[in-house]
């Protein structure tokens, strides 16, 4: 931890992440116009440039962009956590089973991951999102379905080494049932690197989420989702540049914060090389 915080870039990442989490948590308290994020409109102040009242200006319906960006943090954090959680729920047991049992089961599960990994993650999320229909929760499912094979791979690798350890052999010799071995003995000893990887993936997940919303697949109006705000605001960007600037800045800083932190973490944990790109 000390080594992590000594690096100025990692420290900056941590600060950004803490601010983001606070913004998400305290949005109802901090937002000057909470109803603007919850469906209310304010037609008297359409396209108001940023000033003392509207810190980030207002949008085409006169809504305070600052309030909406704050509430957007909630959506991004929450959806991101759920998407990664779902990917873990899918990917981790499959990987543990593949790594523990080997043989035909392993081969089958690994070939399925090969198929999923043969798509760029963004494209896979887009294709699944298109198939499920546009909505925020479908986007979440699409992202989880695009992400799980990475965790399956990772945990399979760990499991193949853990299954040779004496305590697993002891359990096997004592007649413990195979699935109990997987979940009670193998999983707890392989989960740590996966949790680290998942937290490093958070930035990419938030970015993918915003990208899908930008394409019209994710959140729908009037949800204050960052990608969707940019998609709506881009029609007006010449006259109201603040409309796209601030939600985009929020996405950028969030992803940057998690990636800076993740990069530092990777460096500390595995100084020799980078295993996987963002």
């Amino acid at each position: 931890m000390k080594r992590l915080l000594k690096n100025p870039l990692s420290l900056a990442g941590l600060v950004i992440v803490v601010i983001l989490l606070l913004a998400a948590l305290l949005a109802p308290v901090l937002a000057p116009f909470p109803d603007h994020a919850l469906g209310g409109v304010n037609p008297v102040a359409r396209f108001h440039p940023p000033d003392g009242t509207y810190w980030m200006g207002t949008d085409d319906l006169g809504r305070d962009i600052f309030s909406r960006v704050l509430y957007g943090a909630r959506i991004s954090v929450w959806t991101g956590v759920l998407a990664i959680g779902l990917a873990l729920v899918l990917g981790v047991p499959l990987g543990a089973v593949a790594g523990t049992f080997g043989g035909a089961v392993d081969e089958l599960i690994m070939r399925i991951t090969d198929i999923f990994l043969s798509f760029p993650p963004l494209l896979l999320a887009i294709a699944i999102g298109a198939m499920l229909g546009p909505s925020l929760s479908n986007t979440m499912i699409a992202i989880a379905l695009a992400w799980w094979p990475w965790y399956t791979r990772l945990i399979r690798g760990e499991a193949t080494s853990v299954r040779e350890r004496p305590f697993v052999e002891a359990a096997r010799a004592a007649g413990v049932r195979p699935l109990v071995i997987v979940f009670r003995h193998i999983l707890p000893n392989t989960i740590a690197p996966v949790i680290v990887q998942a937290s490093m993936d958070f930035g990419s997940v938030v970015l993918t989420l915003a990208s899908l919303s930008f394409l019209g697949l994710g959140a729908q109006v009037p949800t204050p989702e960052w990608g969707l705000m940019i998609n709506t605001g881009r029609t007006y960007f010449v006259n109201a540049p603040w409309y796209v600037t601030y939600p985009g800045l929020a996405i950028f800083l969030t992803v940057l914060g998690f990636n800076l932190l993740g990069d530092g973490l990777r460096e500390v944990l595995d100084p020799k090389g980078v295993k996987r790109s963002a």
Binding site: S211, I230, G248, I251, F252, V255, L256, N259, L260
Partner: peptide, 14 residues
């Protein structure tokens, strides 16, 4: 890290 973090559609508009 900035390169992999910036939303491309936003960079395009900027």
């Amino acid at each position: 890290i900035t390169g992999v973090s910036v939303p491309s559609f936003w960079l395009a508009l900027l």
